[in-house]
């Protein structure tokens, strides 16, 4: 019997890039898992990062309850996985009745590429004939310690020319509400980031955090820099090559 994986699609992918969620379902099913999609909205990060612990706790409790019975929870996002894995246990550190549940939930939570590394290492993605840069999100790099995992997957995609750009250690300036509360500072940061990809001659930008990708895609568009922006799941599932990417009607 195949085991059950709960998909936490993330609020941004749900509304802005359903293609990422669809590709994730395809990848998980091809790897032999039964995918379920419990009722969900968001992981609670906006409230958490704004200092509203009560809201974040209420949402976290719902999420934890909704995914009961799933052997694993997979999210196509480094940032949301970081929330589930590192911050849920923190949220309940003074609440004995939920602390255990949150810790146990954290142990079952995986970022998509991490899950594929474990359960579908042989996956053979179809070609993607573009000069492509990887966007290393901060949560990927520093919360999950998964720096370099993305490029490793990209290298396995036929015809994809991987291009190194900018400094992967540096944040793109998204940071959730930071991007609007401190729009000028964030704007400077994302301009540096987008310029880095432009100077490296990237035709496509791929990552696993829709928040960062929206941010960079938005800045590239403002700069008039034609950049196709995809979630990595779309490349691995083979749905990206014929799709213009985020915001794209090309």
């Amino acid at each position: 019997m195949s085991s059950t994986v709960g998909l936490l699609v993330t609020c941004l992918a749900d509304l802005y890039r359903p293609q990422a969620g669809i590709a994730t379902v395809q990848l998980l099913e091809e790897a032999g898992f039964r995918v379920v999609f419990p009722d969900q909205t968001c992981c609670g990060q906006p409230g958490y990062n704004a200092g509203d612990r009560d809201s974040a706790r209420a949402i976290a409790q719902r999420v934890i309850a909704a995914f009961e019975g799933c052997e694993a929870i997979v999210a196509p996002s480094g940032s949301c996985t970081g929330m589930l894995r590192l911050h849920y246990p923190q949220l309940f550190r003074d609440d004995l009745s939920w602390q255990g549940k949150a810790t146990e939930f954290a142990a079952r939570s995986f970022e998509l590429l991490e899950f594929l590394d474990l359960h579908a290492p042989e996956l053979a993605p179809p070609p993607f004939p573009f000069r492509t840069a990887w966007h290393e999100s901060c949560s990927n790099l520093r919360e999950l310690n998964r720096g370099g995992a993305g490029p490793r997957w990209l290298k396995r995609i036929p015809e994809l020319e991987l291009c190194a750009a900018g400094d992967p250690e540096v944040c793109c300036g998204f940071g959730g509400s930071f991007a609007v509360k401190f729009a000028d500072i964030s704007g400077r940061m994302v301009d540096d980031k987008a310029r880095g990809f432009e100077e490296a001659g990237a035709e496509a930008l791929v990552g696993n955090d829709i928040g960062c990708l929206l941010n960079i895609a938005g800045r590239a568009h403002r700069r008039g820099y034609p950049l196709r922006v995809h979630h990595v799941a779309e490349l691995l599932a083979g749905t990206a090559a014929d799709d213009p990417g985020l915001g794209g009607v090309r």
Binding site: V9, A13, D14, L15, Y16, R17, P18, Q19, G21, I22, V25, F37, A179, V180, K181, A183, D184, S186, G187, R188, V190, D191, L214, N215, A217, G218, R219, H221, R222, L246, G247
Partner: peptide, 21 residues
Amino acid sequence: GAWRRARDLPAPAAQSFSDWW
């Protein structure tokens, strides 16, 4: 306004993932 000060905002998808599912 704040978001668009430095960057453009893509339109959301025609159909959300939840609806697709």
